[in-house]
Simulated scan of single mutants.
Amino acid sequence: MAFSWPVRVYWEDTDAGGIVFYANYLKFFERARTEWLRALGHGQQQLKATLGAMFVVTDAQLRYLRPARLDDELLITTALAGHSRASITVQQQALLAPGTPGAPPTVLAQASIRIGWVDVQTLRPRRIPPTLLQQLHP
């Protein structure tokens, strides 16, 4: 089951054409991943301070399907898709909240994001603690 985070499109999110600037989807996805971790009881600063390691994006593949516009209400979803010893992969979507009750949301953008677990000091990969991995699973 995917975690969802609501986002409203503001003026600052749009380009001269009145649609969401493509790079801002990365910001929306980042915020949703941060809130997903927080909902699981793991603040980014807390992980860094207590475990001496942090998550960093190592790969991002995005696909843009339809534009979002000023004042649109979006849902940004995050779901764990897989993991290795030192990274996780999440699937994310930006969905246009439906205007009609019961109507399915429209997928605007989708991404596969790989996030490495690295040592705070050296930025070298580290093994993700097994207890943390267990908590990330749905």
Rank of each mutant, 00 (worst) to 15 (best):
I88C: 00
G116E: 05
R31A: 09
S84P: 08
A16P: 06
Q45P: 00
F29P: 15
I19W: 11
I128Q: 04
A49L: 01
L74E: 08
A23K: 06
D13K: 11
S4I: 03
P101W: 00
V90T: 13
S84V: 13
S87W: 12
Q135I: 05
V118W: 05
P101L: 01
V57C: 00
G116N: 06
D71Y: 08
Q91R: 09
I128T: 02
L51Y: 00
V120K: 02
A68H: 06
T77S: 13
L65T: 04
A49P: 00
W36V: 09
E73N: 13
P6T: 10
D59P: 07
R31H: 03
L26N: 14
D13V: 09
D72F: 15
A81G: 05
R33C: 01
G99A: 07
P105T: 05
R31E: 03
Q92L: 06
G116K: 05
A79C: 07
L133S: 12
A16L: 12
F21G: 12
S87F: 15
F29Y: 15
A68I: 09
W36N: 09
L37P: 06
L37G: 10
K48Y: 03
D59L: 12
D15Y: 14
T50W: 01
W117G: 01
L132V: 09
S84L: 07
Y22S: 05
Y25K: 03
A39Q: 15
H137G: 07
G18T: 11
I76S: 13
S112M: 02
G17D: 12
A103V: 02
L37E: 04
F29K: 10
T34Y: 02
F28H: 03
G41W: 12
T14A: 02
Q46H: 07
S4N: 05
Q44G: 02
G52P: 04
F28Y: 11
D59Y: 06
Y22R: 12
T58F: 01
L96P: 02
G99Q: 05
L136Y: 07
F21D: 12
V57I: 03
R114K: 04
R38S: 08
V118H: 11
V107E: 15
D59H: 13
R85F: 00
R33T: 03
V118K: 04
